[in-house]
Design a protein around this nucleic acid. Structure first.
Lengths: 139, 139
DNA sequence: TTCTAGTTTAGAATTATTATAAACTACATA
DNA sequence: TATGTAGTTTATAATAATTCTAAACTAGAA
């Protein structure tokens, strides 16, 4: 899964967002971004995976802080769901999701897979920031 | 806001879903469905509004049970958000939302206001149940 | 009227998240 | 290279939303 050891790149990226490249943040960067496919997760799953088989443990509080910081910095995107947990996505490009009501899993839909021929005008004084589609699927 | 006293209609509706028409459920029905515009709410807001200026108080547990029962029965729809609370909508027709990132408020978008010219094929063995668009807006 | 399964309820338990404050550390600058 | 400091990490406490529990209540069938 891990593609390369882009530590310097991540350090630069972090500094450019006014985030100090700490050991913890770099570990989390490697885990999240050194992969080909996009990754959907909750803080709970990230915490388990980050701290599995690793000498250096990262505290749960830091996982929360880091995910929040990365989301504000635009490295992660929060996903809309109907569940009472926050879901995040390493794919920050505007894109869509299938939501499987059986397995409760999200799958990406490429932006180009959906085309809209009619979009409403936003309320006065507001601008459209982005548009996301969730397609609920079941057996 | 209240249009009429459709108690018998609600009692029938409830029985048809194998839900006994209790005082509590009928009160909640009246509050939710005796209105012209659709209504977005959380359990917290519903609890406050139901128990404001009313002789008969409905317990929080019952509000939770009822909202859950009404959602399963298809009287309410859960809304997708990025917050850690469940939001519900009395508009159960497939429809879309504006989500204002400033005020964190949802507004309905009529189904006919959005048209899709391209929709992806669902994964094998799955069917599309519904499709919802969220348009994030900001100043 | 009586019985029973379904319902309501207060409060406890659980789960996700945020807050707190002490210890630690990256890094600017002396 | 050493030092001061603001930013960061951490364990733990606090809070918030929801679910669970079990006793009391009730709608409606018989």
């Amino acid at each position: 899964m891990i593609i390369s050891n882009n530590l310097k790149m991540y350090a630069q990226k972090l500094r450019s967002s006014n985030l100090r490249p700490t050991k913890q943040r770099l570990k989390i960067c490697q885990f999240l971004f050194d992969r080909k496919k996009t990754f959907h997760f909750t803080v709970e799953t990230l915490n388990k995976k980050i701290n599995k088989n690793r000498a250096m443990k990262v505290s749960l509080a830091t996982i929360y802080n880091t995910v929040e910081a990365f989301t504000s910095a635009g490295y992660l995107k929060e996903i809309l769901t109907s569940k009472n947990k926050s879901y995040y996505d390493t794919n920050i490009k505007s894109h869509h999701h299938f939501y499987d009501e059986g397995s409760k899993e999200l799958t990406d839909i490429n932006y180009s897979q959906i085309k809209l021929s009619k979009v409403p005008v936003p309320p006065k004084g507001k601008k459209i920031k982005n548009l996301e589609v969730v397609i609920r699927i079941q057996k």
